[in-house]
Nucleic acid binder design. Structure first.
Length: 816
RNA sequence: GCGGAUGUGGUGAAAUUGGCAGACACGCCAGACUUAGGAUCUGGUGCCGCAAGGCGUGGAGGUUCAAGUCCUCUCAUCCGCACCA
């Protein structure tokens, strides 16, 4: 009997296809499990990261089926996005053709791994029917104020005529043509995710313990809530006049109101309206204007890499508590997008303000002293005791913050405010291969959403992609349309949606019965049953954006009445990367291992076994060719030794007490593996130790030759291993057990009962021997035996203490 | 700077509540079977030492009968965010 993975795997993959083995049942009375691995981008071929992702998900899904749950384990394709356009430029292929050919190819690759996906629920996000409902939701969001259009500063490449994402700007230049990137004000569509900032933050608590701590913290930091004081700096009368009485003052936000008496200047962002006014009306000299303009042309990121820089604006504001005149500067480190784009500067207690004050020789006034007498250089930024702060002097920072906020509120000078770092989500892309944003610009009616009955707004197919500009913009006819409201001539929006929009609701689409997919996007009743996802598996690289957007989208769709779910993913597992030679596998480094080749050479079962055995799922996994051979050998052994098994359709009955020692031991090892299996799926998914315990069981089985023990062991081991190496397990199970062993198996406690116990004897905590004793022996007898066992270690010494830990060890503490 | 992790043999790793450090596997060594072995099987394998024994979980302290595990300090590496006032 020769193990032939190719033959076996083909046979069972066909069997599962023919029998629709992995379609979820419609019966909603059954308890469900929704197991989801993040869907792939159809880049052309699967890589080892995919193999790992889907092997983990598949094991969890198959185990859940075995335990009797109704399991939804779907797959699909995140198929819009830039690589398709890049391929179009490079290979002169239409993005659609390229994408759908890749999908067809990768579908076969995934199939060859024997993954237990539902085939009927598969879809691609670039399918027009998917776009249709996404456009419906976007319009709904627009109508309810969750989506809006505004001007904003973006990265713009003059030679490619396109907006670039932050990641596409390399050292201030376009990643493709190398030309300088400038900041340009452009209109775009935004989703008001900030409206959900607090809920997104609060609900992280629901996920504690079920999501990796790291991811929760990353989301928390990203949302970046901070509490402080917001107040108005009023302009001095002279300054007001200078600004043509167009401004009264401006708002600033601080988290350190306790340092307010130390304010020595105020700084505005280069984009602040007052700065713009001064520049436009040439109220400051040319030299300064050109410095400001230079600042405005740099992105936030580039500014952050530059030295602090600014110019005095020649205007003053009035300190709200001391009535002193405070000079106003523009500074490149002040962000327009946070806290109103203006700050109060306290050089004595803030690093940035300090650096800036030193450079421009501005005054530094200390108003906080350390609680303990410590030395410090530069700014003292910790909490301390207030000094030189009028009636608030001698308070500690924390109390002072509360009192000062209270004072501002009482005197209507300002109020307590909560700020978030989270920004609204810009979803406009000047790209072809994306979902069209379903809006129309009408010269009479303004911005008008497309009518529901006209959805989806689909992409024109007769385009050529050059990489310069947006093909939708340059298409001869596509953008010309009639206004849905007045019927007059109008222009269609040519921006497409960020691809993160598609991945923000795909899991709800899977949960909807495909028989309804033509009529509705999401079915509330179906979603009620299947959601939330019981186990989500994917890469850590999605810790922030995808997971935050998906959480937001779920809440937004809930508030729009589509669903009744608060959090989409109850449990999250972030798998580690697959490495080779210590670094991430990548084509450019030439250290990739092609999954197809491994499957060709050893079979899918070996690939799956190795990848689950080599490291726990959340850790990085170092690829090792000879360890793959080891995995292959184990499966071969499992296959070969099955000759010892006697066919049966139910688990053999064994009289445990009549067994020999080796037989009892083998049985114990088998049931230990079963127990381990139950723990593995409840807790950490530590497949590596589960597999190890199966190997231990095999090693123990080899030391005996009882047919019943072998048969019982295979009945159980094939059950445990089925989620990991399904093909060979189905093959052997069919042969010996008529596929009757893939259900929940009861643990028999009798196998764990020992006739005798082995106790370790230590002297002063060091192991010096061991004894085997009967189970029911008394403590005194044990101590006597123990002392005899290690006599030479305690000879001539006095015993100070004797410790007996039942079933484990004896420790004798001696002196001298 | 802030946040999160991780440090255990030649390698990947394991170790309920503190209780035999290194399970399981890779590699290596030896042997068996073989015309042959990059197949298979059996045995060995933390380090030093001929041995008795000693040492050993990044480092230094501490708590404890007993520490990879708890506490304090410290070093190194990785990841995320980063002028957020």
């Amino acid at each position: 009997m020769q193990y032939n993975p190719k033959e076996i795997e083909k046979k069972w993959q066909e069997y599962w296809d023919d029998h629709n083995s992995f379609e979820p049942k419609d019966d909603k009375t059954k308890e469900k499990r929704y197991i989801l691995s993040m869907f792939p981008y159809p880049s052309g071929r699967i890589h080892m990261g995919h193999v790992r992702n889907y092997s983990i998900g598949d094991a969890i899904a198959r185990n859940a089926r075995k335990e009797g749950f109704n399991v939804l384990h779907p797959i699909g394709w995140d198929s819009f996005g830039m690589p398709a356009e890049n391929a179009a430029i490079k290979h002169k292929l239409h993005p659609k053709k390229w994408t759908y050919e890749n999908i067809a190819y990768m579908r076969n690759e995934l199939n060859s791994l024997g993954l237990s996906f539902s085939k009927k629920r598969e879809f691609a996000t670039s399918d027009e029917i998917y776009t249709k409902f996404e456009q419906e939701y976007i319009i709904k969001m627009y109508k309810s104020g969750l989506m809006y259009r505004k001007e904003n500063s973006v990265n713009w490449c003059e030679s490619c005529h396109t907006v670039l994402a932050n990641e596409q700007v390399e050292d201030g230049c376009c990643w493709r043509c190398g030309n300088e990137v400038i900041q340009k004000e452009m209109p775009g569509y935004y989703i008001a995710i900030t409206k959900y900032a607090q809920e997104l933050l609060d609900d992280l608590k629901m996920l504690e313990g079920n999501w990796p701590n790291q991811v929760l913290k990353m989301q928390e930091n990203w949302i970046g809530r901070s509490e402080g004081l917001s107040f108005e700096f009023k302009l001095s009368n002279d300054s007001k006049k200078k600004l043509g009485n167009c401004f009264e003052g401006y708002e600033v936000f601080t988290t350190r109101p306790d340092t307010i008496f130390g304010v020595s200047y105020s700084a505005l962002a280069p984009e602040h309206p007052i700065v713009k006014y001064l520049v436009e009306h040439k109220l400051i000299d040319e030299k300064k204007i050109s410095i400001i303009k230079k600042m405005q042309n740099l992105s936030e990121k580039e500014r952050s890499m530059q030295e602090k820089e600014g110019v005095a604006l020649g205007i003053d504001v009035i300190h709200p508590l001391t009535n002193e005149k405070i000079p106003v500067w523009v500074a490149n480190f002040v962000l327009i997008s946070y806290g109103g784009g203006a700050v109060m500067a306290v050089p004595a207690h803030d690093e940035r303000d300090y650096e800036f004050a030193l450079k421009y020789n501005l005054s530094i006034k200390q108003v906080i002293r350390p609680k303990k007498d410590i030395k410090f250089d530069g700014a003292f930024t910790d909490d301390g005791i207030l000094i030189n702060s009028g009636e608030f002097s001698s308070l500690d920072s924390k109390t002072a913050r509360a009192k000062i906020i209270e004072y501002f509120e009482k005197n209507s000078l300002g109020k307590k405010e909560i700020n978030y770092k989270l920004r609204d989500w810009g979803v406009s892309r000047q790209r072809y291969w994306g979902a069209p944003i379903p809006f129309i610009h009408c010269p009479k009616c303004g911005l008008v959403p497309e009518k529901k009955e006209n959805l989806p707004v689909t992409l024109p197919e007769d385009i050529t992609i050059t990489g310069e500009g947006n093909p939708l913009e340059t298409h001869p006819s596509w953008k010309y349309c009639k206004c849905p409201k007045c019927g007059g001539d109008a222009l269609r929006e040519t921006d497409t949606l960020d691809t993160f929009v598609q991945s923000s609701w795909y899991f709800l689409r899977y949960a909807t019965n495909p028989s309804k997919w033509q009529k509705i996007g999401i079915d509330k009743e179906d979603v009620d049953y299947w959601m939330s996802v019981d186990q989500y598996i994917g890469g850590i690289e999605h810790a922030i954006l995808h997971l935050l957007y998906a959480r937001f989208f779920t809440k937004a769709l809930r508030d729009l009445g589509y669903i009744d779910v608060d959090e989409p993913f109850s449990r999250l597992l972030t798998q580690g990367m697959v490495l080779k030679d210590g670094t991430k596998m990548s084509k450019s480094k030439g250290n990739t291992v092609d999954p197809d080749e491994i499957i060709q050479k050893y079979g899918a079962d070996t690939a799956r076994l190795f990848i689950l055995f080599a490291a726990p799922p959340h850790k990085e996994l170092e690829w090792n060719d000879s360890a793959v051979e080891g995995a292959f050998r184990f499966i071969k052994r499992l296959y070969d030794r099955s000759e010892k098994v006697k066919p049966t359709d139910k688990i053999p009955l064994i009289e445990h007490n009549s067994l020999k020692k080796e037989e009892k031991f083998a049985r114990k090892k088998v049931y230990e593996a079963l127990q381990k299996s139950y723990q593995t799926y409840q807790k950490e998914y530590s497949f590596n130790t589960l597999i190890a315990s199966c190997m231990e069981a095999m090693n123990a089985l080899n030391a005996q030759d009882n047919v019943d023990i072998w048969s019982e062991a295979y009945f159980i081991l094939l059950n445990i291993l089925e989620p990991i190496i399904p093909h060979v397990c189905w093959e052997l199970s069919e042969k010996y057990f008529d596929l009757n062993n893939f259900t929940k198996i009861e643990i028999k406690d009798e196998v764990f009962e020992e006739d005798s116990i082995t106790l370790v004897i230590t002297v002063n905590g060091k192991k010096r021997g061991d004894i085997e004793v009967a189970k029911d022996i008394s403590k005194e007898e044990i101590l006597d035996l123990a002392k005899k066992n290690i006599e030479k270690w305690i000879e001539g010494k006095s015993i100070i203490k004797e410790i007996y830990v039942p079933n484990k060890l004896v420790n004798i503490v001696v002196k001298g």
